[in-house]
């Protein structure tokens, strides 16, 4: 489903991702954890090319995203192809990034309508059914600033789903939320996971990782230091750095 090989990324001279290799199967829920600054959000953002990469390759359903080979040289793919690839990849941001000038419904229908994926009728119906799914059927005509953080994030999930993505990326989806609102967002994500959606989640919610992850990937200093089932990672990690990190996050939660 997603195949990342020898991925390197620099911010100027700062080497933020170092030779990342990661393979994700269809229907898999992968949770990426690690200390802040370890590159986990950056890795996630590379997967829909919101962050350009310097070398290596990311394949989604056997097609490259971002960089392609052209006459033996790596170059950025045409924007048209990039947009097409991004349709397959839904993304949920830490700060929601809802469009404040549009109603909840129009946030969801904007992309399908603009890209001619659906007619107005179908798009609206889709929006209402997605909103029902995340428990917000009654907020379709509200504007984003009339919603709580948890509601905003659920709308953002519905908005991403409207494009019928094949994989969903979650970039710290609960980090900007008040503690009492985290549950409702995690529930929506669990629902999605149960339906078989391929999900890659960067989070500090270790409870979610334990319960929902098929695989937990641990990152530190721009590298994947280990990966395994939550059972192994949380009870018997191989790496000392993983132990230190887990000790820090688990003793305080």
């Amino acid at each position: 489903m997603i195949e990342i090989t020898n991925l390197d990324k620099y911010y100027g001279s700062h080497h933020v991702l170092k030779g990342i290799n990661l393979s994700i199967q269809k229907g898999e829920v992968v949770v990426i954890i690690g200390p802040s600054g370890s590159g986990k959000s950056t890795l996630l953002r590379c997967m829909n090319y919101l962050e350009p990469i310097q070398s290596g390759q990311i394949m989604i359903e056997n097609e490259p995203i971002g960089m392609i080979e052209h006459n033996g040289k790596q170059r950025e793919m045409p924007q048209k192809n990039l947009n097409k690839m991004r349709e397959k990849v839904g993304m949920v941001f830490q700060n929601f990034n809802l469009f404040p000038h549009l109603s909840v419904r129009d946030n969801i229908t904007l992309s399908p309508l603009t890209l001619g994926k659906m007619n107005k009728n179908t798009a609206n119906k889709t929006a209402y059914s997605l909103l029902a799914k995340v428990g917000l059927a009654d907020r379709a005509t509200a504007f984003p600033d009339q919603l709580s953080g948890g509601q905003k994030q659920r709308v953002a999930i519905a908005r991403a789903l409207a494009m019928k993505p094949h994989v969903m990326l979650f970039d710290e989806p609960t980090s900007a939320l008040d503690p009492e609102l985290i549950g409702e967002v995690l529930d929506a994500m669990k629902e999605l996971a149960k339906e078989g959606m391929t999900m890659i989640v960067v989070t500090h919610e270790m409870g979610f990782a334990k319960e929902m992850a098929d695989r937990v990937v641990v990152m530190d200093q721009g590298q994947i230091i280990e990966a395994g089932t939550p059972g192994v990672i949380f009870t018997n990690p191989a790496q000392e750095r993983t132990k230190v990190f887990l000790h820090k996050v688990l003793t305080h939660s």
């Binding site: 829909n48 919101l50 924007q79 048209k80 947009n83 097409k84 991004r86 349709e87 990849v89 839904g90 993304m91 941001f93 700060n95 990034n97 809802l98 469009f99 904007l110 992309s111 603009t114 890209l115 908005r159 991403a160 494009m163």
Partner: peptide
Amino acid sequence: GQMEAGRSLGLS
């Protein structure tokens, strides 16, 4: 984030 959200939804 507004541009990123638009681009992530497949908009140009």
